[in-house]
Design a protein around this nucleic acid. Sequence first.
DNA 1: TCACCGTGTCATCATGCGATGACATCGCTT
DNA 2: AAGCGATGTCATCGCATGATGACACGGTGA
Lengths: 185, 185
Amino acid sequence: MTGEVPDRRRSSARSREALLEAATELFSERGYDRTTIREIGERAGVDAALISRYFGSKALLYVAVLRAEHGDTAPEDLLTGPRLREVAERAERRGPVPLLRVAVQSSSDQAAQDAARAALQARLVEPLRARFTREGRDRPGLRADVLVASVAGVLLARHSGAFDDLADADLDAIVDVLLEAWGDS
Amino acid sequence: MTGEVPDRRRSSARSREALLEAATELFSERGYDRTTIREIGERAGVDAALISRYFGSKALLYVAVLRAEHGDTAPEDLLTGPRLREVAERAERRGPVPLLRVAVQSSSDQAAQDAARAALQARLVEPLRARFTREGRDRPGLRADVLVASVAGVLLARHSGAFDDLADADLDAIVDVLLEAWGDS
DNA sequence: TCACCGTGTCATCATGCGATGACATCGCTT
DNA sequence: AAGCGATGTCATCGCATGATGACACGGTGA
């Protein structure tokens, strides 16, 4: 074990990080509205009141989650083919990514909604649209929207409890079915 | 106009019906959790307290909505091909059918969740799976789940406010894109 | 006409939520 | 060691929600 010795002293940075991570998981699992700041605090092992101090509000924490989630990787670029696998795998690791939720479910807080929408467009829809345009497909915008919405539906459905086979299947099988439908050009 | 003369006298049947219709619309637009009984009452032009009297609770009203929605038509049978158009058109008329929401988003009330799940399976997933099995497709169960989840994602996304082209496009165009992907065998 | 039961209205309760401020505690700096 | 700012804890506020019971109203039959 060459891991760092965890610094047990107080640290706002550590608390912030713990809250961010817990919030990412919970927003992924249950969506914005059904996640409470008390749950976030509990999972993070941190008092929920610190959310207000470090992020300002639940909505701003949500925005921070969206930013953090995409700050560490390159843009998705494309959903099709190998990229689809990347997106799906990320959803696998952290639950059905908060970003994808906004595709299907509007949240009660307008600021959270707007931020998520902007991120979704910039990270997934726009690159896809650009690609379809480049390839000369007709209705590239609509096609991009439909593809993103489909993928969001499938990845979210996996954890909704409404499907058996989808919940049990491993990710590769799911991606295979999607690619078979949409082609992996 | 050969329509019935609307009976303006008091009538529990009329109130029940008004509540049921308003609830169907609102559950469609916003999902179970984000719809309040006060909103339902307001849209129905009926006091919200009557929900408790006539349906027992918000959750039971939701169950009644699911039943009513599918009581008047034959089973969906299949999602592909012309049937896809039927499902989509119904979603168009009444907003993104409450049934489809459960595919992607679990609700806070367990009874509501279970009822919706059962209806979704019986009405959409099972018939589709049976068809795929009959046709000898591999992984028919998974394939059915993925297709239903995709369609749910797209139809819900149309009203989520996260997509522009999808919101503006007319239904036929959307169905065309879906059919192009999944084939309309 | 009157009494009664179905129907509608309203006030209110209990609960859970996000938010906030007062206070306690820690640990660095001097 | 003392002082002080940073960090953590707790109680509580205001608000929205689902639910419920008390009461008012109305029309229908005796």
